[in-house]
Amino acid sequence: MRSASFLRIARLVLPAVVLSACAPKSWVVLMPNEDGSTGRIIVTGETGQAEVAEAGVAASLDSPTPETFKVTPYRIEQTFGGALEAEPMAPAVFTLYFEVGGARLTAESEALLPAVLAEAASRDAADISIVGHTDTTGDPADNQALGLLRASFVRDALLAAGLRLDRISTESHGEGNLLVATPDDTPEAYNRRVEVVVR
């Protein structure tokens, strides 16, 4: 009897306390991107889904249907301090373009090579990806090979400029990773590029 009336009072007077006592142990919180934009996450539990599109809003991961709730910056820092402190530097992307009809870099792109070297030298245990891209003109398999040709030229140019690093990967995305979305068989100068990523 006594506990029943306590429960009734609790339901009436202390909903906030009851709610926080049931706070999830597992949850995910959306954060703003480095550029200030915010993406979305879709959280799926056993029986339902929730979508979060606002920074600072969390969703429970241990209820059958995820429930959303707001999280204070203080709680984020308390919970995730270690993971946030371990965040590596953001990868630096350099985009190099080619003279038409060849594998020769444009003068502007050639002038970027020292900046790539400086970026690599400034990082602890840097690794570099050199990825060649093409536009959608022609056969995808040919473009795969052309992308690799371009990437290899950039690698050689970086080595000639003095790059000393073991962790270099040279690869091609062919026409599979366009900078400017186009239909098939479309010439597009901005898609004929090599991206050098220093991490």
Partner: peptide, 22 residues
Amino acid sequence: KVKTSTGTIGVRGTRFLVNAGN
């Protein structure tokens, strides 16, 4: 896909934090 033992997070171009409390 980012999973915990009880839920799955689908990613739409973004940054997020996950706490897998036990």
